Amino acid sequence: MNLDTYFSTPVWWDKLDIDADAIFNFCHRLKQSDPRGHDVSNVGGWQSKEFYYGDHPELTPLLNEILRRSKKCLSDFGYDEVNFETYMDNVWVNINKLNNYNKIHIHCSSFISGAYYVTDSNAQIEFYRNFQEQYSIESLAPISELNAINAPKFSYPARKNHLVMFPSWLPHSVEPNQEDIERISISFNIRIRKKERQDKS
């Protein structure tokens, strides 16, 4: 019998050619300038206060690479690329040490969210199916084998110089860091806006 799948959940990923070691040093300078940081989804880790494109020129090459790839997200969703474009909204740094993690959450009012990994880590980012769907699936009968149709969650590894991007409304979390090394990432939100009209006169 034929099988079609609809209402798919996109996740984009890529390996970047960025100086991750320089960004590592930037992240530590940012933490030294504000040791308290900001508490949002992190449990025991450090998150910077949010900042914006242009606030830290050291990150401009990275953010430009992310924005360039966000055009693919816009295209894959079928949006009008002639009249609309993506732009970088807020950005922040995450530093998780041993046993630190990030609770399940979503990013409101954005189009695409993502993470760039400054370091390698065994603590993966996890994405979750809608709870009502999963409850319905699991309450009918025992599942003998997990697959893309029935899985309650899926995960991506945190690999140095890799980028993961996903719809902002997709629930996600970060596993507890089981290693006594820092797990450093840069998170961001991307929005859509109408392009400014060019004066042809």
Rank of each mutant, 00 (worst) to 15 (best):
G45D: 06
I184A: 06
A20N: 08
N96L: 11
F84V: 04
F127K: 06
W12K: 05
V91M: 09
V93H: 06
D80Q: 04
A151L: 10
L98A: 00
H107K: 08
S136A: 15
I181L: 07
Y87C: 11
R193V: 11
S139G: 00
N42S: 12
E126W: 00
W13V: 00
S168D: 12
Y128M: 13
S113A: 10
V82W: 00
V11W: 01
R68K: 13
S201G: 15
S139M: 14
N42K: 02
I143Q: 15
L59C: 03
V91T: 15
D55S: 10
E58L: 12
K72A: 06
D180V: 05
E85G: 03
L74Y: 07
V91S: 09
D76P: 00
S75P: 00
I66A: 06
D17E: 15
C73K: 02
D14E: 09
S201K: 12
H172I: 07
Q178C: 09
Y117V: 01
A158W: 10
L3A: 05
K160F: 07
D89I: 00
A22P: 05
I66T: 04
N130I: 11
P35L: 11
N122V: 10
S109Y: 07
K97D: 13
A115T: 05
V118F: 04
A151Q: 14
P142M: 08
G37L: 09
I95H: 05
S75A: 14
I112T: 09
S173D: 12
F188C: 10
M165D: 09
I66G: 06
K160G: 06
D21N: 13
K15G: 09
P57W: 04
S136N: 15
C73H: 00
K195H: 10
E196Y: 11
R193F: 05
D21R: 03
E182P: 02
E65G: 03
E85M: 08
S144N: 15
S109Q: 08
N83D: 09
F7N: 06
I181P: 00
C108Q: 13
E50R: 07
S139E: 14
F188Q: 03
D80E: 05
N102M: 06
I186T: 06
H105I: 13
G54T: 04
F84H: 12
I112E: 11
D55F: 02
P171V: 07
K97Q: 13
S168M: 08
E133T: 13
V43F: 01
I125P: 01
I149M: 14
K153T: 12
V11H: 08
I181R: 14
I137V: 15
N189A: 10
I149T: 11
I190L: 10
C73V: 09
S121G: 04
S70A: 11
S155E: 12
R36P: 00
S201W: 02
F188D: 13
A22M: 10
P10W: 01
N177G: 09
N42W: 04
F111T: 11
A141S: 15
R197H: 11
S8L: 07
R68W: 00
S70N: 06
D89T: 08
P167A: 10
D199I: 15
L16P: 05
S121E: 10
E126Y: 02
R159L: 15
D199M: 08
H172Q: 01
E50T: 10
K49C: 01
L16Q: 01
